[in-house]
């Protein structure tokens, strides 16, 4: 398996139209694949010209997202996150 590239989702809580679910904000996952570039929906929503951004499918473990509140910690959640919401991160726990 190739080495996982970990990313942390920014924990910002702005108002307005964003496509980053709040349950993933502040969480660390790894890049499942990179897509795009796609126009930034935060600009499209207001009828503005939109900046093309890379879109990353990030895979999170249930344990990372929900802690002890999950009954299957190794199950995963994938979500598409625009690159301006992501920052490089260390692995959240020993692989």
């Amino acid at each position: 398996m190739t080495e996982r590239r970990y990313m942390r989702v920014r924990a910002d809580m702005p108002p307005g139209h964003v496509r980053t679910p709040s349950y993933l904000r502040g969480k660390v996952g790894w890049v499942e694949r990179t897509l795009g570039p796609f126009p930034n929906p935060e600009q499209l929503a207001y009828g503005r010209n939109a900046t093309p951004l890379p879109l990353m499918r990030i895979r999170f473990s249930m344990a990372e997202v929900w802690g002890n509140a999950t009954d299957a910690p190794d199950d995963t959640i994938d979500a598409e996150i625009y690159s301006h919401w992501l920052e490089p991160a260390e692995a959240p726990h020993a692989p």
């Binding site: 679910p21 796609f38 299957a72 190794d74 959640i77 994938d78």
Partner: peptide, 15 residues
Amino acid sequence: PDTTTVRVHDSTADM
């Protein structure tokens, strides 16, 4: 079964 990993996909963007 517990041996099957569930992968949830949240359609948050363009795919």
